[in-house]
Nucleic acid binder design. Structure first.
Lengths: 224, 224
DNA sequence: TTCAAATCTCACAATTTCTTCACAGAAATT
DNA sequence: AATTTCTGTGAAGAAATTGTGAGATTTGAA
């Protein structure tokens, strides 16, 4: 759950299998795509932490894929040059890739590049991406939420509201404070909106909904 | 030492005395001025961390005073509206006040505003909010109360009533004073309401309920 | 644009808290 | 002892706050 996801984009099944075996052995999660369109779809859907892209692929080649990805996402990208292929380093990096690697490569090489790129991508917050409190854990980057290993799907407001409550677990938060922290300092709406989101949060959390306590006359508290 | 200084500007002595008792009980340092000119002089001299200003004052009213202060200082300011007066929120805040409070107000309200404004002005002070007296301890921020490590659930009025008694432990508090401090200074209800809350407080406290002594003909006292 | 999801608001129901009152009982006063 | 004054307390209902469903509005993606 906490581990980082890597998307492999390569049209050769053997290559994907090989790389996946490297990555899973190191504890990374792996998602695979055999072409550019699948890759774009999977990036949307799974928000990988890193994308490995083979330059030479049918239909949409690596360069084109990077261009597409960069229109919407800022995910780190490493290029893999095809076997024996001439590598145009400058072209790849200019297009927005973060690093490149020429086949054949060995696992140590690959891991070293991956770690470097990932570290560069999240410089000062290796763990602040994750918030944990009681049965909850949130991945702020992926916007994914778990209640005791069960994933729940939250909207933006619900997610942020839960995040604030978790960051201040066991502390009462007034509706005003919550409004300030989630909606912004000078939001003009009614504070009762908080109640509505608390309602749906409790519903989505399910059984354990009672962990969000109402503190009468004050606000809400996440008690864990 | 490190405690924060608050300047009270109000022409009514009673009001200043009342507010001072709130503030000193909370550990703030207090400076008082009865008019705008004195206030300006004291701000120069003592550099308070916060200024409480009554809107209605002879000679220089609150609005004029804020204008003067803002010419040289950026100290946080909270307006107090005069008794029964119509509050022009927009005018006050536009002029540079950071918050406002309408009389009658109670100590908890005042403290909440003060803390919010001070925190906003100086965002690095995790000041603890615990009050202790005898077997009791209260966390005002979390609205949680303990009797000898056992948590008891108090309503707002009960909590504030106990807080006031604790802040003045071993001193007799008349019903009128308690009313003033918990309900606000010119609350219109009957003082016997205090009795009812004392009753439920004693019940919730349990065995040790007798620490709230009745002082016949005068009021109540927390004896610890 | 057009649609669907997300968000916000509102009204009313449900719940909790607060206040008042009346009367019983205790303490002081005569 | 009788009387007066004050306090304890249970209960009713007033008031305040929260829960919630439904519909309006906004946002975001295709």
């Amino acid at each position: 759950m906490n581990r980082q996801k890597i998307l492999i984009v390569d049209d050769e099944l053997n290559m994907r299998t090989l790389i996946r075996s490297f990555l899973t052995a190191e504890g990374y999660g792996v998602v695979e795509a055999s072409n550019g369109l699948d890759a774009l779809r999977l990036i949307e859907k799974t928000s990988p932490d890193l994308v490995l892209i083979d330059v030479m692929m049918p239909f949409m080649d690596g360069y084109a894929l990077v261009e597409e990805i960069r229109k919407t996402m800022d995910v780190p990208i490493i290029f893999l040059s095809a076997k024996g292929e001439e590598w145009d380093k400058v072209k790849g990096l200019k297009l927005g890739a973060d690093d490149y690697l020429s086949k054949p490569f060995n696992s140590a090489e690959l891991m070293a590049r991956i770690e470097t790129v990932l570290r560069r991508a999240n410089p000062a917050q290796p763990k602040s991406q994750w918030i944990k409190a009681g049965p909850f854990s949130l991945d702020q980057r992926n916007h994914s939420a778990y209640v005791a290993d069960r994933e729940i799907l939250l909207t933006m407001k619900e997610f942020q509201l839960l995040a604030v409550l978790m960051q201040h677990k066991n502390n009462v938060m007034s509706r005003g404070t919550l409004m300030e922290m989630v909606w912004g300092m000078d939001y003009g709406g009614t504070e009762r909106t908080v109640d509505t989101h608390i309602k749906t949060l409790r519903m989505k959390i399910g059984e354990k909904g009672t962990v969000i306590k109402t503190v009468w006359g004050i606000g809400y508290k996440l008690e864990v």
